[in-house]
Amino acid sequence: MDFPKDLKYTKEHEWIKVEGNTATIGITDYAQDSLGDVVYVELPQEGQAVTKHEAFGVVESVKAVSDLYSPVSGSVSEVNDAIIDSPEAINEDPYGDAWMIKVDVSNKAELSDLLSAEDYQKFIEEEK
């Protein structure tokens, strides 16, 4: 299982990459693997506000549903519409093609409690 070092992670299994004021958000390799084949994803509209720890969308496999929790607060600047039509990308390339939303971060201080790749890996080992 893959956990790129340049990303930050949450205990709800999202990854986040911050460049300047923009954060790109998706779900981790571990999350897609636990869900199984993803068949549906529901994402917010551009311009919609998201709040740290609150749900911004839903991802579904055949027999499971999972909320997507935002690792950071802000407003949605871009939505990856491509994965709505081909949700299988979430299984195939969770850190690349299957990014979900980009957010204009409103409070950078919120980034301080995110997990490093190492910490996240440790966390899921314990969760198993």
Binding site: D37, Y40, V62, P87
Partner: peptide, 14 residues
């Protein structure tokens, strides 16, 4: 031995 083999439920949903 069934009429159909394992059914692709993922395709049905996608």
């Amino acid at each position: 031995n069934t009429r159909v083999s394992r059914v692709d439920e993922t395709k049905a949903a996608r």
